Amino acid sequence: MVALAQVEDMIKAQLPDAQVVVRDLTGGGDHLEAIVVSAEFEGKTMIKQHQIVYGALQDAMDSEAIHALALKTYTPQAWEAARQ
C-alpha cells in the first residue's frame, strides 16, 4: 500500500505544475482515483496524458502498491470547462 500523499508526490515529480487530487476508492489503499490537471497535457491525446501519469506511478504499480487506478486528466482549460 502507498500513501495518497506519496502518489501525489510521484505525479508531481513528473508534472511539477500539476494540480493533483488522489482518493482511495475502497478504503484498502490499493484502488485509487487520481484527477490530474497540467498544462503539460496541452496538445496531447488522452492516451498520451494517461501514459505520462502511469509512467510517474510505474514503480508503485509494478509492485502492486497500486492495484487499480481510475484516472482523469485535464488541461487547465478543459478543467475549467468541466467545473462549470
Score class of each variant (00 low, 15 high):
residue 2 V to C: 12
residue 4 L to G: 11
residue 4 L to S: 07
residue 5 A to N: 11
residue 6 Q to D: 15
residue 8 E to T: 15
residue 9 D to T: 09
residue 10 M to W: 12
residue 11 I to V: 15
residue 12 K to P: 02
residue 13 A to S: 03
residue 14 Q to C: 06
residue 14 Q to H: 08
residue 19 Q to S: 06
residue 19 Q to F: 11
residue 21 V to Q: 13
residue 21 V to N: 09
residue 25 L to R: 11
residue 27 G to W: 13
residue 27 G to H: 03
residue 36 V to A: 02
residue 39 A to H: 10
residue 40 E to P: 00
residue 41 F to H: 04
residue 42 E to T: 09
residue 43 G to K: 04
residue 46 M to T: 11
residue 48 K to L: 06
residue 48 K to E: 02
residue 50 H to E: 11
residue 52 I to A: 11
residue 53 V to R: 08
residue 53 V to T: 06
residue 55 G to T: 01
residue 56 A to N: 00
residue 56 A to S: 09
residue 57 L to M: 14
residue 59 D to C: 10
residue 59 D to H: 14
residue 59 D to P: 12
residue 60 A to P: 14
residue 60 A to E: 15
residue 62 D to Y: 10
residue 62 D to A: 15
residue 65 A to W: 14
residue 67 H to N: 06
residue 68 A to R: 11
residue 68 A to V: 08
residue 69 L to A: 07
residue 69 L to F: 02
residue 69 L to N: 06
residue 69 L to Q: 01
residue 70 A to Y: 08
residue 70 A to G: 02
residue 70 A to P: 01
residue 72 K to H: 11
residue 73 T to W: 03
residue 76 P to H: 10
residue 76 P to R: 00
residue 76 P to Y: 09
residue 76 P to N: 12
residue 77 Q to R: 11
residue 77 Q to P: 04
residue 78 A to S: 13
residue 78 A to T: 13
residue 80 E to R: 04
residue 81 A to H: 03
residue 81 A to T: 10
residue 82 A to G: 00
residue 82 A to K: 10
residue 82 A to E: 12
residue 84 Q to M: 13
